[in-house]
Design a binder for these strands. Structure first.
Lengths: 210, 210
DNA sequence: TAGATTGTTAATCGATTAACAATC
DNA sequence: TAGATTGTTAATCGATTAACAATC
């Protein structure tokens, strides 16, 4: 039933993961179908917006019935591309890098950490949950020999652009950037930023007064 | 020179930390003044938008001159509320919680982690960079005896709402939520979400095709 | 003064909401 | 069939961009 794909705005895109999260929960709770109105009440959106959002990707619903939860969840899963595995390397094996490698939650969504990289000789050679920490010098060799799609950048901000350039040169198309800088990449590479300090600033700002 | 405060939209608010970050860098590099046009080129925004954004808070610039970098940076610092210290507790001393406690970068912005809390007997009693891990049962006592403004929620998602309720009951007004759920709080409490899985989904989505 | 650049108003663009015919 | 709810078009609202008078 899915029709033609429309342009997906930034605003819509940012809501998709949240829809997916809710629908996963709802399905687990055993609910078979849901209307845009019911979903809107749970998620504190308008029903109109939900229908508009879903219709960017084609009609998943049925008049008079609503949406089949399981079917819709699977559609969103496909749209997000989390129906297949992604292979990830983490560059920078400090606290944050190790935390990402340790976090088992990503695995169930198919994000598999295949290796960590660092320049600290004390870290090189050890392993975290069975994931080895390699010498950063081996980065190119590793990415040549293993099919890696995503690099998580957990280096100090001074090194972020440089290591990004290196992995991009070796064909990686997705950068998950935790360094507090905006990094530049070619058009065909995607950067998703997690600026923790920006997030804290925002929290502080909103606690402040405005 | 700062005029009346205007309403600050979500969109504007999300850009302020980035302005602050850039101006900090520019000041460090020794630049004394900058025009909206120069800044727009660096940040890939329009000069118009930058001027509109700053004018939500009053006029910081001077016709024919531009903006004084140091002054503007300080204004943004005040607006963000990061000119004073914030006391933080981290609930959930797993990988992520420990990484946050370990991360020294927050300290320089005045975000001071005063304690970690967990239910795991193996963790309770040890300390991370001089920050103790306490029994979650001691949460109320601790927040009564220490002036804490922010709680970082790093528990499994099933426990997130519950521990949030507990800290909110004890007067904490800022929640930095790392659990993959949307939590509910009273109107006077601020929640800032860091949904890492949503962020990964978004990355995957954009690598996919759209 | 002349040149530069702001602060601010007006125009445009895009996103959200409302409304309703189509249809299950 | 009657009731419910979608998909989609139109109306509204808000955010971004353009333009320019004010002024340093």
């Amino acid at each position: 039933m899915a029709k033609q794909k429309n342009y997906v705005s930034e605003a819509v895109m940012r809501r998709i993961p949240r829809y997916y999260r809710y629908l996963t929960d709802i399905e687990k709770a055993g609910t078979e179908r849901i209307s845009s109105r019911e979903l809107s009440q749970r998620m504190r959106l308008t029903a109109s917006q939900i229908r508009q959002d879903f219709n960017c990707f084609g009609g998943f619903g049925q008049q008079g019935y609503g949406y089949n939860v399981s079917e819709l969840r699977q559609e969103l899963q496909k749209i997000l591309g989390v129906n297949t595995d992604h292979h990830v390397i983490v560059i920078g094996a400090g606290n944050l890098g190790q935390a990402l490698a340790n976090y088992t939650g990503f695995k169930k969504d198919g994000f598999l950490v295949n290796g960590l990289f660092d320049i600290n000789p004390r870290l090189i050679g050890i392993s975290i949950r069975g994931i080895n920490i390699y010498d950063l010098d081996d980065l190119e060799r590793f990415t040549d020999q293993n099919p890696i799609q995503i690099a998580a950048i957990c280096t100090p901000k001074e090194k972020a652009q440089e290591v990004t350039n290196r992995v991009v040169r070796n064909g990686i198309k997705g950068i998950w950037n935790f360094a507090a800088v905006d990094i530049n990449v070619p058009q065909d590479v995607v950067v998703e930023n997690v600026h923790l300090s920006d997030s804290l600033y925002t929290l502080s700002f909103r606690m402040n007064d405005y």
